[in-house]
Design a protein around this nucleic acid. Structure first.
Lengths: 204, 204
DNA sequence: CCATTATTTGAACATCGTTCAATAATCATG
DNA sequence: CATGATTATTGAACGATGTTCAAATAATGG
């Protein structure tokens, strides 16, 4: 073969990422293979490595796309709400829903760690911070009396907690003594942290 | 070779688990290999498979031992505290400390998923529930007015949240806008959930 | 002392990520 | 239009992985 030019570099990248997403979604992460991705888009491994530097590089870009999808859904949901509290709850609902609907894709985001030669300096970091920023922004609006550090702290604590509920629920590692719903657990966390946040005041 | 009988089946299992633990601790999970474990204890792969049915089986037993270690530390820490709240905080501190001191071992517990033929029915489940039970027990003692469901619910929400903070912090996926300490984030979550718990009352 | 039994080995297999020379199709040029 | 340069694509090859299993070996029992 040779320069077939059926697809551009960028087109192949997109095709590969989409194929990888579909494989993870239907067969789980452990079924994701460079050769399988390549053959699913009508190419061979060599081509894949011509377009991604690593297998991990492919995974990283797939994850970035997943995060973008989550953020997009959050922004859409947030737009419909008037109060900061409503927006925070809407964001959490999107997070929980996405994790429930796409458990494998969601897990890969957090459980995939690129070995030594990490080509992920900012690609993911920036996207993570976007989510935290969205939460923090609403905390800020909720109570302008807090200093930025306190706002960011509360937002981080809450969001990490929500994340923890999702992870344990998804991996079946939640306490089974009482078959709780993720939504209710998340509600409890939101109620708790928001109330505590309103009660607390800056020392300044 | 042949029946050398230098070590019993059970001794080899223990040696293998300890060797695996050491490898994970020093080189990370991706460096854990059946052949490496075997050679580190003076045997070959074949023997390892004579004693564990899977590579995953070995990992699972390693994880069980790690959880046992965490639980033991928790029980020790809990023994020194008088109040339920003090005990909950002590447990959380142990959890955070262990995750910080042994990040790779801690992560394997939660990120390792045994493929299809899972030989992990109760081995892990029981151990997880032990931790949740310890937390729930102190919630119960904290406020006898709540019905068991509410107690378990609050305990689950708090502990999942703490777990989330540990995971995100360990994997470097926490919001960097404010370089928070895990302990303070955990404190915020504990304060929030405990206060909310005290405020809430059973409808009965 | 030999036969049985249990233990340990290591070669073999399929599959994985990864590399890279060879190949084939296109483009540019005269 | 033909020919050479360029580039996309291939697929064989490599080392390492988990896993299996017949063979080899040591201990045991009669």
């Amino acid at each position: 073969m040779g320069r077939r030019s059926d697809h551009s570099r960028e087109e192949i990248r997109k095709m590969a990422i989409d194929a990888a997403t579909k494989i993870v979604e239907t067969e789980g992460f452990q079924a994701l293979t460079a050769r399988k991705v390549a053959s699913n888009i009508g190419y061979t491994v060599g081509t894949l490595y011509h377009v991604f530097r690593n297998f991990d590089d492919l995974v990283i870009h797939m994850n970035a796309q997943t995060i973008d999808e989550i953020v997009a859904r959050m922004q859409k949901a947030v737009g419909k709400k008037r109060s900061p509290e409503g927006r925070i709850r809407a964001m959490a609902a999107v997070y929980v829903d996405f994790a429930t609907e796409h458990p494998d894709r969601w897990r890969v985001i957090f459980e995939h760690q690129a070995p030594p030669g990490v080509p992920t300096p900012e690609l993911m970091g920036v996207r993570r911070d976007v989510v935290f920023e969205m939460v923090a922004e609403n905390f800020r609006e909720l109570s302008p009396n807090h200093i930025p550090q306190e706002v960011a702290h509360a937002a981080t604590a809450l969001w990490s907690g929500i994340h923890g509920i999702c992870i344990l629920a998804l991996t079946g590692k939640l306490y089974l003594g009482g078959a709780f719903s993720m939504s209710k657990l998340v509600d409890t966390l939101i109620d708790s942290v928001l109330n505590e946040f309103r009660r607390t005041q800056s020392a300044d």
